[in-house]
Design a protein around this nucleic acid. Structure first.
Lengths: 334, 334
DNA sequence: TAGTTTTATGTAAGCGCTTACATTAACTTT
DNA sequence: AAAGTTAATGTAAGCGCTTACATAAAACTA
């Protein structure tokens, strides 16, 4: 592999000059610039980014830590992050936290020791305090799907309370009065917020929240199925199920369909997230749109702007959900 | 940030000794080792991996290039790759190729110039020749989901012909005689192989392949829906649809359900890949299992073994699909 | 005990870049 | 035309490590 030295010799200039044309931050005369460029070309020169990093103490890499790499949720986010960052010639190093505190911490350590210039984190197991402390360190962080007041400007998040409210209000407006609720794990902030929104809507319609018709799921299809099984055994009627995400909604609906129930005629459903798949099941799932890809993109742009000083990006950090009405929620049978 | 120098001073030894205890490849007396370790501990020392890389010309990072980061298919693969590699203390740098030749090439260049020690590629747009040439370069590569004879030992792949055969045979055994086939894009090798298997099964049952009942889709739900619409307009009856992947099968089934058809009674379906979601639709999709996560893991283990000389992993590179019988294919109406 | 081998540690030369500073060349001034 | 500016390029000191080689200390030989 040709080095900067080879280029400098061939072009008949000094190392520094070659470096200058690469980074074009200092003036170099057009003539020498061309000599250097053509020398690079002849040699098929590619800068050694490791050496660049060491010398400039910039790794040009940003670490991304997500709960999972699979599932319908993080993929789109990763896609946007990768696209935005690569456009800025930065590379993305990934790590998965698996919603486990020690794995999340490990992942962060791992990424930092790799010399990432910034970290984009979608973590749920570590506590706020840890993140605040992390924020005070040398590596800038941005948080997706999480809001911490002390570092609010570093958070890119969705108004989950509003989303929960919208979902529930939708079925309420259809006239439902007895709702079941399948929640995400309550240690997750988004689960809590969605539930809060749910309760607000209930209150607005003068309905009480029924603890017996509440089930704490795990955000997975499997969990939705379990929840539905459990709910169906409760000795309390309900005509609609509000689910804290689409995956659980799908699992729950599958159980009902299995039992020969007709959906939405016998039971209405609303989901949350607007992942692609449930558009292709019958009935098509009514849900709340979660602009996760936008949020991924914003996080990447934030880094580009504030860490790499790219003046272009305009970043915003709070996003609002909106209802996507499809076929899974209708009027209750009267 | 503390450097190796700080540690050496505090421990009262030379830089080299500190480096030795880090890499424990040379003997260091137990006593000095302890001194060094405690000095590291006191300083909260973390080696600068960039400097390590530059000095050792090993970046400890492996580049992973996939078509897409999202979708139900690559997630599980990425998860396994990340897990295996991180367990070996290697970094995963990702890039997406978007099934586009120039983007795939860009991605490869990007990863190489980033100093990756090896590349794991799931590419479909670049041709064999390019990959063979790449293979001759300095960065070892391993290919997932692709077989190239000249570099067969670098390929981790599925016997797609067999999978296509199994899927089709399954419906044939149920007595279907008129099959439609929704294929993936024909420029992709796996599409071709699956179709080949399909044809082999037809031949075995003395049936002719009907060009009119063949539709080239795009491996997406949307494409499956389009395909179904088109197929339904063809003036030729069929009682089963073999789909080259689950996503298209789901899209196709959705169209039928929409039209009020009952599945599988009126029309049988088989998919391919065994992605999680279609287990939660009704009917549950009968499909061919694609051990994509295993393949991801194997690719990672190959790298660990052959690039990083980890003696442990046992790697195998050819995988066989197997049929997963669920509810979407049954006997034809007679 | 002197000589030999083995083992533990130190010395110093890179790895391929960036960048502060020094130098030289090329213009402006007056 | 001499002095003062400015622009272009060169020099060399790192960045934080690894590792071949040199050296010193310890452990055997006979």
């Amino acid at each position: 592999m040709a080095t900067i030295y080879d280029v400098s010799v061939l072009a008949g200039v000094s190392l520094a000059t070659v470096s200058r044309v690469m980074n074009n931050n200092t003036k170099v005369s057009e003539k020498t610039k061309q000599k250097v460029l053509s020398a690079m070309d002849q040699l098929g020169y590619r800068p050694n980014t490791i050496a660049q990093s060491l010398a400039s103490s910039r790794s040009n890499s940003v670490g991304v830590l997500v709960s999972q790499l699979d599932g319908p949720f993080y993929g789109p986010m990763m896609t946007e992050i990768e696209t935005a960052l690569r456009a800025g010639n930065k590379h993305v190093i990934i790590a998965a936290g698996h919603s486990d505190e020690s794995q999340e911490r490990d992942g962060v350590d791992f990424l930092i020791s790799r010399g990432c210039d910034a970290l984009i984190l979608d973590v749920e197991a570590v506590d706020d305090e840890y993140l605040i402390k992390l924020h005070q360190g040398n590596t800038p962080i941005v948080l997706i799907n999480r809001y911490i007041d002390e570092i609010s400007e570093r958070c890119v998040y969705l108004d989950n309370e509003l989303g929960g409210y919208l979902a529930t209000k939708h079925v309420l407006q259809h006239g439902h009065k007895q709702l079941a609720y399948i929640s995400g794990p309550m240690f997750k902030l988004d689960s809590k917020d969605r539930l809060l929104g749910h309760k607000r809507a209930l209150t607005e319609f003068n309905l009480a929240f029924e603890q017996e018709l509440f089930y704490e799921g795990n955000y997975k299809e499997q969990g939705g199925s379990q929840a539905m099984d459990a709910l169906l055994k409760v000795n309390k009627p309900f005509t609609a199920v509000v689910c804290a995400n689409d995956q659980m909604a799908s699992g729950a609906i599958a159980v009902c369909l299995e039992k020969g129930m007709s959906i939405p005629e016998e039971l209405s459903f609303v989901g949350y997230d607007n992942i692609p798949f449930p558009q292709y099941i019958s009935p098509k799932l009514t849900t709340v749109n979660n602009p996760i890809h936008e949020m991924g993109k914003m996080a990447a742009l934030w880094v580009l702007k504030h860490v790499y000083n790219d003046p272009k990006p305009i970043v915003e950090n709070t996003f609002s959900p909106n209802l996507i009405v499809r076929d899974s929620a209708t009027k209750p049978i009267s």
